[in-house]
């Protein structure tokens, strides 16, 4: 019996809500060292990688590795039924049948919820992902996740051009980052400057630029990442015209969630 046990229901609720908009299936790997999740979206433009070390969980027990592809929408629905302080136990039989059982136990209510999920294909993941080198990127922007969420919200409210997927153009130049979206009847632009760390030492916006860069992304990827970014105070955006962009939020030194996104060519 393989049986990871953990107490991070709220965290997983948020992760699954953010990911299930964009990614249908994900590959989950529980091991002694923690959890690794990877998923690719159906248009194969974005890859999400979540790493959460065992120490990130209040309670984490995993004697043997367990890896499987699961449907994210089904999981999000199951987690919506769970209480925030539930203890989650994940069980798969050793003979490797094709289902896994998630049990949510509410110590307070004395209630146990059980969901069986069939294994599904995981759409080409997991992939080998080497640690990325910041030096390879033309520009790196760090800002509070709340600020990033506000920008995405503004762009979304204006960026619906009707007949095609809305896009955003992110440009870094002269120590400022500009986000631009075109809607049916106008455009929306947000410019962020590097902020004085003395004024707001806890919420700096930092822009490191080696050279100017301007890239086009589908807005839906920004929106999904901005939901996931609630897991952390700060986001880091690595931009290059040669490499997939990396949108990252670190989870309190205990892991990270990263979106690798191919910019649009046009």
């Amino acid at each position: 019996m393989l049986e990871p046990r953990l107490v991070q229901t709220t965290f997983f609720k948020n992760v699954l809500e953010a990911l299930s908009d964009l990614f249908i299936e994900a590959h989950f790997e529980f091991s002694r060292t923690g959890l690794e999740l990877q998923a690719i979206d159906t248009s194969r433009v974005a890859l999400v990688a979540l790493v959460l070390r065992a120490e990130a969980f209040n309670h984490y027990l995993c004697d043997r590795g367990l890896s499987m592809g699961l449907n994210l929408a089904d999981m999000a629905k199951a987690f919506r039924c769970a209480n925030n302080d539930d203890i989650i136990t994940i069980k798969a039989e050793e003979d490797w049948t094709d289902t896994v059982t998630f049990t949510f136990e509410s110590p307070e209510d004395g209630e146990i919820l059980e969901f069986d999920f069939d294994f599904v294909g995981s759409n080409g993941v997991p992939l080998e992902i080497p640690e990325y080198q910041e030096s390879e990127y033309q520009a790196i922007v760090r800002m509070p996740s709340a600020k990033f969420m506000r920008i995405c919200k503004k762009l979304s409210s204006f960026g619906d051009s009707g007949d095609r997927d809305p896009v955003v153009i992110i440009s870094v130049y002269k120590e400022r980052v500009r986000s631009f979206a075109r809607g049916k009847t106008g455009t929306s632009t947000t410019v962020c400057l590097q902020t004085q760390t003395v004024d707001k030492p806890k919420e700096p916006t930092l822009i490191e630029m080696k050279e100017e860069v301007s890239l086009i992304f589908d807005l839906k990827y920004m929106n999904s990442f901005s939901k996931a970014s609630t897991l952390s105070d700060q986001v880091t955006i690595n931009l290059s015209s040669e490499l997939p962009a990396v949108f990252e939020c670190k989870i309190a030194e205990l892991g990270y969630i990263r979106y690798y996104i191919s910019p649009r060519k046009e």
């Binding site: 997991p126 992939l127 997939p244």
Partner: peptide, 14 residues
Amino acid sequence: GSKQGSIMSFFKKV
């Protein structure tokens, strides 16, 4: 688990 290739080859294919 066994990996199904590298992220760079995935993005090159796209």
